[in-house]
Design a protein around this nucleic acid. Structure first.
Length: 306
DNA sequence: TCTGCTAGGGCATTTACGTCA
DNA sequence: TCTGACGTAAATGCCCTAGCA
């Protein structure tokens, strides 16, 4: 069919699919071929060469000031784990104050983010001056006061931030807390934002991979359908031939139907290879006795009919 | 060694914002 | 100017796992 299969018995379906040249232009086949059998999916994901995501330009966060305010306010705040509706949970969500339509944070997530925030309080105090400069040229500048009652404001990452995040993602698709902190500091972002970015990035990667897999399976399906059609046709021809001339079939078969598989060196008639359509007429010409053979597109024999 | 609890992290899903045609 | 589609940041809840008593 119209796509090339990279044969490697040790590679799994996923890798094989990536090597099919389905014109996804998303993956580097050579890299995948040479990979040292990634130990898990994360490693595999890490090796994908994805197109740079289209992250739009924009000044960093109109709401960063708000975080500074939050952080400073929280210095004297004692978390109350039993009250998700407390000031903590209300103000911690990014500018989500007083937005009753939003779901409340679960206590555990509140605690998680509270800890995270406390870790970066000092850091954001350092950031404050720079953010004011940035905000002065942002499209939307909203303070906590301005924003009350409105929905959360959305941060748009700058080109630099995006590319640095991409670079780090290529290195490792997950971050440990230290890496997260360091990267956040480097990017002038909160660790939570870095974490979220990586989560979303992994999701995008997975989605892309799913699309690639889907495309591959579609091709496989088309190939199998076509192969099945050919086999049916050939079977009908053989049946007709056998009925007309039961003897000396070897001599009578068209040359095209008598193929020799280069790998197993068996004569193959092209039909009846375990397709379950043999019916009452058994073709004894092509099959090794007691050794059923199935067409398996995932196990790449030199001959698809073998 | 087994068990229950807890914290932390990842993922799926959803929401909402920003951009663009 | 309005609108719908799309990309994506962020929130949420669930699940899994490691560490601990």
């Amino acid at each position: 069919m119209g796509f090339q299969v990279i044969q490697d018995d040790d590679h799994n379906l996923c890798n094989m699919g990536l090597g099919l040249g389905l014109n996804t232009s998303t993956f580097d086949q050579n890299e995948l071929k040479s990979q040292d059998h990634a130990d898990d999916g994360k490693e595999l994901i890490r090796r994908f060469k994805l197109e740079p995501s289209i992250l739009t330009l924009g000044f960093s966060s109109s709401d960063n000031n708000n975080h500074v305010v939050e952080a400073v306010d929280r210095k004297n705040y004692t978390p109350s784990l039993s009250s998700p509706n407390s000031a903590l949970s209300n103000s911690f969500s990014n500018n989500n104050t007083n937005n009753s339509s939003m779901k409340r944070s679960s206590p555990s997530s509140v605690i998680k983010r509270e800890k995270e925030l406390l870790l970066v309080v000092g850091y954001h105090e350092e950031m404050e001056v720079d953010e004011k400069v940035v905000n002065s040229s942002s499209r939307v500048v909203a303070s906590d006061e301005d924003d009350e009652g409105s929905a959360r404001k959305k941060l748009r990452l700058t080109k630099e931030q995006s590319s640095l995040l991409e670079d780090n993602f290529k290195e490792h698709s997950t971050l440990n807390p230290k890496q997260k902190q360091a990267l956040a500091k480097q990017l002038n972002l909160r660790p939570r934002q870095v974490e979220v970015w990586f989560q979303n990035r992994r999701a995008r990667t997975k989605l892309k991979q799913t699309e690639v897999d889907c495309e591959f399976l579609k091709k496989c399906c088309e190939t199998l359908t076509e192969e099945n059609r050919k086999l049916h046709k050939e079977l009908q021809e053989l049946k007709a031939l056998k009925l007309s001339q039961p003897q000396s079939m070897y001599m009578q078969l068209p040359a095209a139907t008598l193929t020799i598989c280069p790998s197993c060196e068996k004569i193959g008639g092209g039909g009846g290879a375990g397709d379950g359509t043999d019916g009452p007429v058994k073709n004894s010409l092509t099959m090794a006795p007691g050794k059923p053979q199935f067409y398996n597109p995932f196990k790449q024999h030199p001959s698809a009919a073998c």
